[in-house]
């Protein structure tokens, strides 16, 4: 028997995650304390929720840079409608509905008007946040019912599990199954691997893309709700810059920037890695600029690593697998 190390990016990220945890708990006092672990989960709630949609888009060979702006627009609408007398449940629905609509608009512009998703969502990144500014201006709304503001911040009973975690797990299982165990997921991967072959296989590529853009918007709306209540704040600059974290979590998790490849558990590991590194740096009292730099470096590594690994593999095949 020969021991074979199958070195792929999805598996190596688990190793990296373990290394980060060990290093972090050795260099800080309370990294693995229940409070801190709880913090990591709750701090990454919105990123995770949005990543569940964005992973499908990147696999399709598309991208959505506007997710954080959708979050902000949804959040502003939530605050505005609540402040104008809407019942809280209606305000929540409005937030999610606005998110869904924004996602649909992205999808429609990309597929029907035929603009690239990078260009479209750079545009809507500015547009959606601009509308949020128009609605709330510099106002912030932070009077929400107590029941809801605990959500995403409080833990379940006496445990250290944040209340948002079960929702995230449910979504994770749902979208994981959708990606890996349904025809819809297979078609998503197929379109990313070869849009032409997908058409020959009878996939309605345009409709498929619109659906994925739309539910990415939906998830950004959900993230908007959680964000609003976690910070008890509805304002126009909520979640600024989160789109980069979402995308880097996906790429860290082994989703190919060229489309066609990606796993749900890889992305979950990617989010946890990003969240853990952030938390570690915070505990070490490293200042915010440095944290941004680290995020940038992680993003670069996640784009470069799969390419480098493939090159190494190709070189190995060429050299003839003399093992």
């Amino acid at each position: 028997m020969k021991l074979k190390l199958r070195f792929s990016w999805d598996t190596s990220i688990l190793i990296i995650l373990a290394v980060v945890w060990v290093a972090a708990s050795l260099t800080t006092d309370n990294f693995l304390s229940s409070i801190n672990v709880s913090q990591i989960f709750s701090n990454t709630s919105e990123i995770t929720i949005m990543a569940f949609g964005v992973i499908f888009l990147i696999i399709l060979g598309e991208i959505d840079l506007s997710v954080a702006s959708i979050l902000a627009l949804g959040s502003s609408m939530l605050g505005w409608s609540y402040a104008h007398g809407a019942p809280i449940w209606l305000a929540i629905l409005i937030c999610i509905a606005v998110g869904t609509l924004c996602g649909f608009i992205n999808g429609w512009l990309v597929t029907k008007v035929g603009l690239g998703s990078l260009a479209v969502t750079i545009g809507t990144l500015a547009l959606y946040r601009g509308i949020a500014n128009g609605i709330l201006g510099t106002n912030t709304i932070n009077e929400f019912p107590e029941f809801w503001t605990g959500f995403g911040f409080d833990t379940i009973g006496t445990s250290f599990i944040p209340q948002s975690l079960p929702i995230i797990i449910l979504f994770g299982i749902g979208f994981g199954l959708l990606l890996h165990n349904t025809p819809f997921g297979r078609r998503t991967l197929a379109i990313g691997q070869s849009p032409e072959a997908a058409r020959f296989a009878g996939v309605n590529v345009i409709k498929h893309k619109i659906i994925v853009f739309t539910f990415t918007g939906f998830m950004s709306g959900v993230a908007g709700v959680i964000y609003t209540f976690r910070f008890s704040t509805a304002q126009a600059d909520n979640g600024i810059g989160l789109e980069l974290l979402v995308i880097s979590a996906c790429l860290l998790g082994g989703v190919s920037i060229f489309g066609g490849i990606g796993t749900m558990w890889g992305v979950i590991a990617g989010v946890l890695l990003a969240g853990s590194v952030e938390s570690w740096l915070t505990l070490r009292e490293i200042n915010a600029q440095w944290r941004t730099i680290v995020t940038g470096i992680l993003l670069l590594i996640s784009v470069a690593a799969p390419v480098l690994i493939n090159k190494a593999k190709a070189a190995k095949v060429r050299a003839g697998n003399k093992s």
């Binding site: 025809p183 297979r186 991967l189 197929a190 691997q193 070869s194 032409e196 072959a197 997908a198 020959f200 296989a201 009878g202 066609g260 490849i261």
Partner: peptide
């Protein structure tokens, strides 16, 4: 170009139109 998803498995290619 048209018939196959080259990086996908044989099984996934064969089942693609027969879900």
């Amino acid at each position: 170009q048209q018939g196959l998803f080259m990086i996908a498995g044989v099984d996934r290619n064969i089942s693609m139109e027969s879900f």
